[in-house]
């Protein structure tokens, strides 16, 4: 067993984990943050996407011990106060979800897209390309692409 200290959504959590505990297992089972989903467990679907030090990564393909001393943001930590984050609101507005299973990962990836393009311009082709790590079985993606563009725009990103 290894003792780790991970800052999750701004709060420092000290915990004891097995070396083989995945980060997503730690988040869901030890911290009860079940917003982060496991869709495939094989690094393909992106439902488990969280931010590690501000950058989207797949938490099913990372050990909890690798996050020791790092900062993690999950979907639960995205909105300020009680309302929705502009990216979450855009998914609602644009019908960017149906069953919602992929949505937490989609939003975390979308926030990464907005962050990477905050100083240039974002277009639909770029959004489609940068959503490649996230699968959705319901929507056909059009609503998701629209949501990412609207959410980014409402966050102040220039959108073509």
């Amino acid at each position: 067993m290894t003792t780790i200290s991970v800052t999750v959504n701004g709060t420092v959590h000290k915990a004891t984990v097995e070396a083989r505990t995945l980060l997503v297992e730690f988040l869901r089972q030890q911290l009860n943050l079940t917003g982060t989903h496991v869709g495939c467990d094989t690094s393909q679907c992106g439902a488990c996407t969280i931010h590690l030090n501000g950058r989207p990564v797949k938490s099913c393909t990372m050990l909890a011990v690798q996050a020791d001393g790092q900062a993690v943001t999950t979907i639960e930590g995205v909105a300020k106060d009680d309302g929705m984050h502009p990216m979450q609101a855009a998914f609602k507005e644009c019908h960017g979800l149906q069953c919602g299973f992929c949505t937490p990962g989609m939003v975390m990836t979308a926030l990464g897209i907005a962050e990477r393009h905050k100083t240039d311009q974002l277009d639909e082709t770029t959004v489609r390309h940068e959503l490649e790590g996230n699968l959705c079985r319901c929507t056909g993606y059009q609503g998701i692409v629209n949501a990412v563009l609207l959410g980014a725009k409402n966050m102040g990103v220039k959108v073509a």
Binding site: T49, P56, K58, G112, E130, E132, G133
Partner: peptide, 9 residues
């Protein structure tokens, strides 16, 4: 290579 999440790790 891969997708943004893979490129970050």
């Amino acid at each position: 290579i891969g997708d943004p999440q893979v490129r970050n790790r």
